[in-house]
Design a protein around this nucleic acid. Structure first.
Length: 671
DNA sequence: GATCCTCGAGTTCT
DNA sequence: CTCGAGGATC
């Protein structure tokens, strides 16, 4: 019979051996014991802990099979924010980065640490006295979700740092991802079980980490690579990024060995092209490379712009392309009657999603790209989102019926389709007689930036219009519980929710209401200008073209659209009916043109701000007299950048537009 | 008349 | 996000 002390010792020894085996497998890539031996040790420890509950510890490797499910994830704040890195696509942008760095440091040449940019999920691991105490997702960069229980099941993540004198506290930044072969095997298992397959390794990793039941996470083959530090209390930092990665590896954290220190632009680009060539042979997905100024003291010297480090750059690979067949070229009718050709595609997996449609914009675009039905085409997701046909890879048989011809009649209402000279788009002339246009008009009316009626989606609008329950936006407010409940897929609960949303939407604002009307050429910005200028609906409706052109950014074309809209008796009736139904807003109060600190300044927002939503930030800026616009130009006074800032940030840098973060904005406005 | 800056509109998938 | 086009500016 073993003494208690011997049992404690044995458990300790087993834990060390098991974690050591993990480390050798995942970190050093040099397994020392086989699977059977590993299993034997593991089961012995499990048995020991089961018969001696006092031995249990959250940092025992046996916990890697997962604890009991949680109700929800807590939100945790990162002690040091997890920054996003500016993106570059072209070689010139890399050269510009190097130039800025050299100028910032006042040196001739700079060394950069180059690493792959993993296509996974960034996480933050907190170790205290060497023990893993917390793991969180990146979230918005300032706070994320506490997924500690799940991360404990990820075997490459050490539960204890491999060090005899671990730092008091350290935050380790890295990426959780799934190897492609593990992903394939997982999907095969999901298929066998009749469960949903994942679109790509990234989604699979994300889905696995967001399981409320850690036992499910434990069954998923997740990997981890460390690449940086957050807070580091009482840890002697090395001099360079490269040495920092060595240090992480010494601490028992897996570090990707595909890395290099390169000199200048040529060195960075060489690494980039090398990795691009190896990309398909890597076991995991990468979406580019990351360059960081190698010397940590120089990193500190360069500092940050709007929470994006000036010392790092992500150089992305070009969007992935795939080849597929055009099965048909159909047309869609939009809100303004625009008849848009759309290519229906043989579903193809590209850039992390299955693509089945791609817009061809207009007739000229179809000619320019010379796309016919039956052609094989190259497809990519522009900006990794919107599918786009790049070019024809191989023409199909191209029979006479395979050419695209703009229909002479609207497919929805048979009205004539007309293309005005000098215009790129062809339009259905059916106006609101056309059901497609009526549906789009209704969707626009209900959209978030207009009347914000949640729950009025495409399917429902189809039913309402096709069933003749609704013809104009005003009819929406006549809907009854019984009328709604008669529709498909609409229970009493959903019907009640929709009615409540409609009721709520009656409390509108003048700019939203004007925008919701869907006047041609009047978008959000113009609606706001009109509301501010006229202060109320009546004078706007009564205004002639000359008066309308007195509004900033309204010229002859927009003025004509507005006058024509309000001249239409039908439109006036709808407006009357809407007001009668109870739709209302504050009138007579032109926005007090406060001569705030931002008067005359134009701002562009990009990325996610820590505290303010986009709407709140816009409102705040406008209340101080500033303007918020959507694209960056030389005339932009400030770009306000948050995390995940995109192309607008790079453009601002290229144009030399001042970049500020949320704090900077608040300081500017409040003086 | 040319050029630049903005805005509007259409679009895809999870 | 991207294209097209309206409006302002020089």
């Amino acid at each position: 019979m073993a003494t208690p002390r011997e049992i404690v010792e044995r458990a300790k020894k087993l834990r060390v051996r098991i974690e050591d085996a993990n480390r050798r497998y995942y970190v050093l890539d040099a397994p020392t014991i086989d699977d059977a031996e590993y299993d034997r040790l593991f089961r012995e420890l499990q048995a020991l802990e089961a018969s001696h509950p006092e031995l249990a510890s959250p940092n025992s490797p046996t916990q890697r099979v997962g604890a009991a499910p949680a109700e929800a994830f807590r939100t945790v704040r990162h002690r040091v924010p997890m920054l996003s890195i500016n993106n570059a696509f072209a070689d010139e942008e890399v050269a510009a980065f190097d130039r800025r760095v050299r100028e910032g440091l006042g040196v001739e040449s700079v060394e950069y640490a180059c690493e792959p940019k993993f296509d996974g999920l960034a996480i933050n691991l907190t170790y205290e006295d060497g023990a893993l105490v917390r793991g969180a997702t990146r979230g918005d960069g300032y706070s994320g979700e506490d997924v500690t229980a799940n991360l404990r099941t990820v075997r490459p993540i050490p539960l204890r740092l491999h060090s005899t004198a671990p730092p008091r506290r350290v935050e380790v930044r890295g990426e959780v991802l799934m190897y492609r072969r593990d992903f394939d095997a997982l999907n095969a298992r999901q298929r066998d079980k009749g469960e949903k397959e994942f679109a790509n390794p990234r989604n699979a990793a994300a889905g696995s980490l967001r399981q409320l039941d850690p036992r499910i996470t434990a069954s998923r083959p997740l990997r981890f690579f460390a690449y940086g530090l957050g807070e580091a209390e009482d840890l002697r930092l090395p001099e360079t990024q490269a040495r920092l990665l060595d240090l992480l590896a010494d601490l028992g954290l897996p570090v990707c060995e595909t890395r290099e220190v390169a000199k200048g632009v040529d060195g960075m680009l060489a690494f980039y092209h090398q990795l691009a060539a190896k990309r398909a042979r890597l076991p995991y997905d990468v979406d580019g490379v990351v360059y960081k100024v190698n010397r940590l003291d120089r990193q500190g010297e360069l500092g940050f712009v709007a929470r994006a480090p000036r010392f790092a750059l992500a150089h992305k690979f070009p969007a992935e392309e795939a080849t597929t067949e055009v099965t048909a070229i159909e047309v869609q009718v939009g809100r303004t009657g625009a008849v848009t050709p759309v290519a229906r595609l043989q579903p193809v997996f590209v850039g992390g999603a299955t693509v089945t449609n791609a817009t061809l914009h207009n007739e000229d675009e179809v000619r320019r790209k010379d796309v016919w039905r039956g052609d094989l085409v190259v497809v990519r997701r522009a900006g990794d989102v919107i599918p786009e046909i790049v070019r024809v890879a191989k023409p199909g048989p191209r029979g006479r019926a395979d050419a695209f011809r703009m229909p002479k009649q609207c497919p929805e209402c048979q009205s004539a389709v007309v293309r005005l000279p000098d215009e790129a788009v062809a339009r259905c002339t059916g106006g609101l007689y056309c059901p497609a246009q009526r549906k789009q008009a209704l969707l626009h009316f209900a959209s978030r930036r207009a009347m914000d009626i949640d729950g009025l989606g495409e399917k429902l609008v189809d039913q309402l219009i096709d069933g003749g329950l609704v013809r104009t936006p005003a009819d929406l407010y006549k809907l009854t519980l019984d009328g709604l409940a008669s529709l498909e897929r609409m229970g009493e609960k959903s019907a009640q929710n929709l009615l409540a949303e409609l009721e709520r939407s009656k409390n509108a604002t003048l700019p939203r209401f004007i925008y919701a009307l869907g006047i041609r050429n009047v978008g959000e910005a113009t609606a706001r200008d009109l509301a501010n200028h006229f202060g109320a609906l009546e004078p706007l409706m009564a205004a002639d073209e000359e008066a309308l052109q007195g509004v900033a950014d309204v010229g002859p074309v927009v003025a004509l659209s507005i006058r024509r809209f309000f001249e239409e008796a039908h439109n006036r009736e709808v407006i009357k009916a809407l007001r009668k139904a109870g739709v209302h807003w504050d009138e007579g109060k032109r926005r007090a043109t406060t001569r705030g600190r931002a008067t005359g300044k134009s701002f562009v927002l990009t990325g996610t701000l820590p505290a303010l939503t986009r709407e709140a930030a816009t409102e705040l800026i406008e209340s101080h007299g500033g303007r918020v616009t959507s694209s960056v130009s030389k005339k932009t006074d400030y770009v306000v950048a948050g995390t995940e800032a995109g192309a607008k940030l790079s453009r601002a840098e290229a144009l030399g537009v001042p970049i500020i973060d949320e704090d900077g904005l608040l300081r500017l406005l409040n003086g």
